[in-house]
Design a binder for these strands. Sequence first.
DNA 1: ATCAAAAGGTGAAATAATACATCTTTTTAA
DNA 2: TTAAAAAGATGTATTATTTCACCTTTTGAT
Lengths: 233, 233
Amino acid sequence: MTQINHQRYFDCEDCLFKTISCQYIQKEEFEKLRAKSVQLRYKKGEVILKQGAKSTHFLFLRKGIIKFNYEDENGKNLILSINKAPALIGGANLVNAEFNLFSVCAIEDCEGCTIDVGILTRIALGNTLYLFKMLQFITDVFRSSIFNFISLAHKQVNGRIADILLFLSQNIYMSNEFVLSLSRQEFAEFAGCSKENVIHTLRKFHNEGLIKVEGKKILLNDPERLQKISKHG
Amino acid sequence: MTQINHQRYFDCEDCLFKTISCQYIQKEEFEKLRAKSVQLRYKKGEVILKQGAKSTHFLFLRKGIIKFNYEDENGKNLILSINKAPALIGGANLVNAEFNLFSVCAIEDCEGCTIDVGILTRIALGNTLYLFKMLQFITDVFRSSIFNFISLAHKQVNGRIADILLFLSQNIYMSNEFVLSLSRQEFAEFAGCSKENVIHTLRKFHNEGLIKVEGKKILLNDPERLQKISKHG
DNA sequence: ATCAAAAGGTGAAATAATACATCTTTTTAA
DNA sequence: TTAAAAAGATGTATTATTTCACCTTTTGAT
């Protein structure tokens, strides 16, 4: 973690997590959460939650982009999902295990604050509508990853890369033009193929006029045709 | 569904769902669930929940083996997960959507009973420990599928097929010797490869003495070596 | 019992993907 | 500022995978 002092970087007043929470719980209840929460900043590349570590808190991500990373027994990485703020992370473990199944890493500079699992659980147990809202928040993070997996599982690399480009454009950067937060290696870990295959395929799409690649800058020239490649597999 | 009459095939007294439920809720509460529940039998191959259909109830599966199936825009099938009783299914939608994201099909004869979502939700909202237990039940069904996906996403076909054989042996049939409930085509839909590739690979494993294949009968001769193939990718 | 359809199986050709060697460009740290 | 390291890029050889044509066996309906 970047910061060990309990420094305040941003104001809690305009926090989305506070706004949502206070629709369900009393201000005094929320104050109990806030009192124990710590504001944190992460630089691009930093690990926010470490696979295998004990999960001691949630993190409400108020700014930034993250990846969920799974490291296998051979040290090979796989990116399960990419998400942007706002998101409540660490929730893989709410109903589950006490250790993180995956790592969460910043792929752009991030800001957020820790939320004590014990206190949140206690409050949520006394307020089921709030509990449902929190569960929804947590599962949001996984919803998108299911369809990434489906793409991975039965499409070839062309289709998978088209899917990822469309996903990033529509769900993360909200634009046809964006500066990729991932290295080619990470892109490959998301697409489930080799780094070279990613480079070759992006080049091919570029040469065919589907996209324009200039280092990390990517422009989707023809999203409809990408959609067709995605559909065709 | 096989049966439209409210026929009773089995006794509710020894039902695991009842036993678990009654650890958390009153008998009278459970009786409300039971009164609305219908016992059902499904033959191998029958659809239990249909992708895209409105999800009107949960099913407590007390006997049998099922697959979660996703059919894509081109009509291609993908098996996301295979599970055996006891399981609470239909829960994909508890926090989510009102339509089934996947189909659930019997791959062995099944027995179970419907559980009204409305009543269960109402009871669970009044009893958070019970709610947590039900959520745990529901997420159980998905836990295993995550690791199947990880296998799919970054292993080659040898490793994926080794993984599936080990998974079936350890999680479904609980034995090194079993009669496969899947056709070769379905196996391929689970492994994310072609039917021929499944056949070739099983034959290769057979010839190398790793397994013994005789039609649907499979014996894992050397699970340790399969594990190595799984690990190597 | 018979026929048709579905599932299982095989080998070879075509295609896709990876691994490798090598080079260039960009980043990072001293 | 510079050197080292990391990331990006490319073409080719090797390996993996799919597709296809074809055949056999099993299953299910009449």
